[in-house]
Design a protein around this nucleic acid. Structure first.
Lengths: 250, 250
DNA sequence: CGGACAGTTGATCCCGTTCAAGAAACGTGG
DNA sequence: CCACGTTTCTTGAACGGGATCAACTGTCCG
């Protein structure tokens, strides 16, 4: 089972943290036909309204999905890290209900969704793993609904940082976390205004919760940040979340 | 292919509006083992935190899913009508990330998720139909994120009413729509306060957009309500949405 | 050195909240 | 069929979180 650099290994690893896959299953996943593609920061991988039938495996960098009101006000729907399968939804429905854009420069593997479906059909455990992945994403969307509907600006931002940091650590990033969002994008994620994001961040810095300089986030007090964000990691369905959180505190 | 009253027919019908299924596939779905259960209005089908591995096919009535902040503030995550498969997510993840509750008195069919998975494995088109259904739900969640993040109170409520009415019509309900939510629940859906829901509704009534008396909604001007809610039905992925909307206007 | 972009600040406004109480509607039992 | 408790809806007054508009600062980069 070869996992040389630049393969679908990150995706496989992610699936394996939540589902059991046999060696055969793993090989079948790694044998998927795909094409590497790079996108610069800001490039679109799909536009709302596009017809599409491909999906992206994110190998490096960050991607976000978003949609907008008719007046053009953008809401960010999800953030994606290396290992994420992005846009299974659009590709299966055949129509992009939202846009997909590179948040940083990214390396992705381009996979026709028909290939994925065929794989899932031939390997039930793979199908199950993909289902699980889909539902974890749904779970995240639900938590975001709660965030937007019921939490204050500070809670929303603290919650977002907790989620990002924990997801990064789950794929092996360390101590200094990467917040690939500028303040406009934090605003578009949390449903508030740039100006207010700015002021809220200053408040959080003043209270010794975080340090945040040019996309680098230091969490000064994990327990306090969790409390500030009303954060409970269960919805992320991470393996070893207890161990991961213990690392956060260190 | 028997579709006597009280069978899984509503579920099958819904799947067929979005996916192509052979007679064999349909029969296999209708042959799923299940148990009828009734719940009174307000009863819980699942509590956040429960371990679970069953899913519900909603045959009659309305169901909602919700979760709450640590302080107990509730956010409604989704609404479900007859024909919906509810809680595939919880059952597959094995853990309820949110609560499932009867909004009206309901009749549901209780299905072990293992049976559903086995069915999907044996019938790829069924698997595909279930995927599609899951992604349509995701699409709705995303639209709700946009609603909560970027729209005003009036837009949120108008949007909700448009969605409900159209989904009801898609399963055959007519002229007078059923809003199975009281004002507290509208508030919990739209992320605003009961008081403000009340005032916003009065404004909408005063402007001749709607009539709403004890859960009965009359849409006095569909085009205007759509505009007020910044509503575009594409995200619901309804077949014949054009025809359906034409009916709304009548 | 100049232009673009991200972050910051100030002043003012308003949409929606909060708290509190009253009015209707509803269901239930006697 | 009325009495009464409960739930749902409605109203009022005061407050505040966050929005809005506009300008300014810093920084990166060619």
């Amino acid at each position: 089972m070869s996992m040389h650099f630049h393969s679908l290994a990150p995706v496989l690893n992610k699936l394996r943290t939540r589902s059991t896959l046999s060696n055969q299953d793993c090989e079948a996943i790694l044998a998927l036909p795909f094409r590497y593609t790079n996108f610069e920061k800001g490039n679109f991988l799909a536009h709302e309204g596009d017809r599409t039938d491909i999906c992206w495996a994110l190998l490096e960098g960050f991607i976000y999905r978003h949609k907008a009101t008719s007046l053009g006000e953008m809401q960010i729907l999800s953030l994606h890290l290396a290992g994420d399968l992005v846009d299974l939804q659009n590709s299966l429905l055949g129509l992009a209900h939202h846009s997909v854009q590179a948040l940083t420069s990214v390396t992705v593997a381009w996979i026709p969704s028909s290939q994925l479906m065929a794989l899932a059909e031939a390997h039930p455990p793979v199908a199950r793993a993909l289902w699980t992945d889909t539902f974890v994403n749904a779970s995240i969307s639900h938590e975001w609904l709660l965030n937007l509907g019921r939490r204050t600006a500070r809670q929303r931002i603290a919650h977002l940082f907790c989620e990002l940091a924990l997801r990064e650590r789950a794929i092996g990033e360390t101590s200094h976390y990467h917040v690939p969002l500028n303040q406009d994008q934090i605003a578009a994620t949390t449903g508030i205004t740039v100006v207010h994001v700015n002021r809220t961040l200053q408040g959080m810095r003043a209270d010794g919760l975080i340090r945040l300089v040019v996309n680098k986030l230091s969490i000064l007090d994990w327990a306090a940040l969790k409390r500030a964000g009303d954060f409970n990691s269960a919805y992320l369905h991470l393996k070893d979340s207890v161990a991961l959180e213990r690392q956060m505190a260190a």
